[in-house]
Computed example of a mutant assay.
Amino acid sequence: MTSVSAERAYTLSHLDALESEGVHIFREVAGEFERPVILFSGGKDSIVMLHLALKAFAPAAVPFSLLHVDTGHNFPEVIEYRDRVVAEHGLRLHVASVQDYIDAGKLRERPDGTRNPLQTVPLTEKIQTERFDAVFGGGRRDEEKARAKERVFSLRDEFSQWDPRRQRPELWNLYNGRHAPGEHVRVFPLSNWTELDVWQYIAREKIELPQIYFAHQREVFQRNGMWLTAGDWGGPREDEKVEKRQVRYRTVGDMSCTGAVDSDAVTLTDVIAEIAASRLTERGATRADDKLSEAAMEDRKREGYF
């Protein structure tokens, strides 16, 4: 075999390279930290992240537990998927409930009914009480400009707050997990992935997803230019008309702030073609919580959110 042929034989595809990087990050954290945890919501990014973790440690079990911040306004299809995956792989799931904090008077409902901004306190307190020192998140740099500033290993102080000035260089895939007592590190194995990469990888690996990611008939109403799902979270109002449309979700979060998009994409091939033609990021097109202000995401990250 010539040197050129040998080089071609060992050249990784871009999906193989991304997968290899993600597996390396999981193994690096396992070697550096004592109590890591994976944020898992049942959304596509956390599903891919868990898939990478399963590959990283196979045939052994994943050595980390999962953590979900449950707003109480999640899509039922996603919660059902979450619980099924946890049972299938014999994983331990921690749930930080926003509703519990509201019932205890520690948090108050927002006038707009959106609970996504209320996730920060349950998340940070769960991290502190369980003494998690590394927290995996599915954030990607292509999603939003504040997330584009994030390193793969992102240091958080004892209050779980993010300071961009404390970002560390990550040359040659060397990650610095050093942290003081009470601090922890947020870890983003999908940092260098795009939305299209995620969908292409899901197709290649034949990963099952909640069906709301594919086109289906749903009762929705329009608010602030987005199609929202009707529910007891505060929608629709009297002047908002509910109608049945064929839609799907590009991203999954709180029902009160996650919009659906009109779509005929019923298969993975259809979705990949739709995403490849899109000129809007998934958060820019479908997340109302990012439209609260120009710096909404960065403000929440500084307070401890992902």
Rank of each mutant, 00 (worst) to 15 (best):
P117F: 06
N116I: 04
D289F: 10
E170Y: 06
G177P: 03
W233L: 05
S191Q: 05
K145S: 14
E170W: 08
R110D: 11
G177I: 02
R115V: 07
A203Q: 12
E243N: 09
S13P: 15
A296T: 05
V152E: 07
K55L: 10
T286H: 01
E144R: 08
F64L: 07
L15C: 10
A17D: 14
R165A: 14
Q119H: 11
G284H: 03
K241V: 15
R110N: 10
K244V: 15
D45Y: 04
E274G: 08
Y101V: 03
D157G: 07
E282N: 06
W193D: 00
S13T: 15
E274T: 09
E109N: 10
W172Y: 11
V69A: 01
E28P: 01
A215V: 09
G43V: 04
V266L: 03
N176C: 04
E303I: 02
Q222T: 15
R131Y: 02
E7M: 11
G113E: 01
G43R: 00
W233F: 08
L50G: 00
T251C: 15
R110W: 06
Q211F: 09
R27V: 07
R35Y: 05
G259V: 01
G259E: 01
A230W: 01
E243P: 11
T71A: 03
K145A: 13
S3C: 04
G139Q: 12
E240N: 08
R237P: 05
V37C: 13
V62N: 01
E125A: 05
D100Y: 05
F306R: 04
P63S: 14
E274I: 04
D270I: 06
G225Q: 08
T267I: 02
E19K: 07
A30M: 09
G137Q: 09
E144G: 10
G182F: 06
D197F: 00
G139R: 03
A104L: 12
E150I: 04
E238L: 14
G234Q: 00
Y249L: 14
R287Y: 11
Q222I: 15
T2I: 10
P236S: 07
P63D: 11
R110V: 05
T269F: 00
K145C: 06
H94G: 02
G139P: 00
A6M: 11
A260N: 04
P210S: 15
D262W: 09
A96F: 04
G138A: 03
D197Y: 05
H51I: 03
S160G: 14
G22Y: 01
W233S: 03
W233K: 02
P169D: 14
Y213G: 02
E303N: 13
V98A: 08
H24Q: 12
S3M: 05
F306N: 02
